[in-house]
Simulated scan of single mutants.
Amino acid sequence: MAKPLTKTQLVAALAEELDSDKKAATAALDAVCNIITREVAGGGAVTLPGVGKFYLKERPARMVRNPATGEQFQKEADKVVKVTIAKALKDSANDE
């Protein structure tokens, strides 16, 4: 498995893809990340075509167990961010 791209590497690749400088690519990446964060935190969803859909899911209160002690306790309801991967991305991963 290859190492994941760092933000610096992603910005450099984005700048090259857009024929732009790294400062503009950083601003564009930060803007996209901020929009996704704001929308999902507000209960909405964001779909990146060809990549996937980011959304917020509410989990009900439930009983959980501490694996170290075996103690069971009630965990309050909470929210988690989920990502559904687009079929195009899944298919491209299997083509290589």
Rank of each mutant, 00 (worst) to 15 (best):
residue 48 L to I: 14
residue 49 P to H: 13
residue 54 F to T: 00
residue 62 R to D: 02
residue 34 N to W: 02
residue 68 A to P: 00
residue 27 A to Q: 11
residue 51 V to H: 06
residue 65 R to N: 03
residue 54 F to A: 04
residue 46 V to M: 08
residue 64 V to K: 12
residue 45 A to P: 02
residue 42 G to P: 12
residue 59 R to I: 01
residue 51 V to S: 04
residue 25 A to L: 12
residue 26 T to R: 04
residue 65 R to C: 04
residue 63 M to E: 14
residue 36 I to V: 15
residue 29 L to S: 06
residue 59 R to G: 02
residue 45 A to E: 12
residue 52 G to S: 10
residue 56 L to C: 14
residue 51 V to P: 00
residue 30 D to N: 07
residue 26 T to P: 02
residue 37 T to M: 10
residue 31 A to F: 02
residue 49 P to K: 15
residue 35 I to M: 15
residue 56 L to T: 04
residue 47 T to S: 14
residue 68 A to Q: 12
residue 30 D to K: 01
residue 41 A to G: 07
residue 55 Y to W: 11
residue 31 A to T: 01
residue 55 Y to N: 03
residue 43 G to D: 12
residue 69 T to A: 11
residue 68 A to W: 01
residue 45 A to I: 05
residue 36 I to A: 13
residue 25 A to H: 05
residue 55 Y to A: 07
residue 50 G to M: 12
residue 65 R to S: 02
residue 32 V to K: 08
residue 60 P to F: 03
residue 37 T to R: 13
residue 53 K to V: 14
residue 40 V to F: 05
residue 41 A to V: 07
residue 44 G to E: 05
residue 31 A to V: 00
residue 58 E to C: 03
residue 40 V to P: 00
residue 26 T to L: 06
residue 35 I to V: 15
residue 25 A to R: 02
residue 34 N to H: 07
residue 62 R to A: 09
residue 57 K to C: 11
residue 27 A to P: 01
residue 53 K to Y: 07
residue 58 E to L: 06
residue 47 T to D: 10
residue 46 V to D: 00
residue 51 V to K: 03
residue 45 A to Q: 15
residue 60 P to I: 01
residue 27 A to S: 08
residue 31 A to Y: 01
residue 37 T to D: 13
residue 55 Y to V: 02
residue 69 T to W: 06
residue 38 R to A: 07
residue 56 L to S: 12
residue 56 L to K: 10
residue 38 R to N: 05
residue 28 A to H: 03
residue 61 A to V: 03
residue 28 A to V: 08
residue 52 G to D: 05
residue 50 G to Y: 12
residue 65 R to H: 02
residue 36 I to R: 09
residue 56 L to E: 08
residue 62 R to K: 14
residue 55 Y to Q: 08
residue 44 G to Q: 11
residue 36 I to F: 09
residue 50 G to S: 10
residue 25 A to Y: 06
residue 48 L to G: 09
residue 62 R to N: 05
residue 42 G to E: 14
residue 29 L to M: 14
residue 59 R to L: 06
residue 63 M to Q: 13
residue 65 R to L: 03
residue 63 M to A: 13
residue 48 L to P: 01
residue 46 V to F: 03
residue 26 T to K: 05
residue 67 P to H: 05
residue 53 K to E: 06
residue 53 K to M: 14
residue 24 A to W: 13
residue 66 N to M: 11
residue 27 A to T: 04
residue 64 V to G: 11
residue 61 A to F: 07
residue 63 M to H: 07
residue 35 I to D: 06
residue 36 I to K: 10
residue 54 F to P: 00
residue 66 N to Y: 05
residue 24 A to N: 14
residue 47 T to E: 15
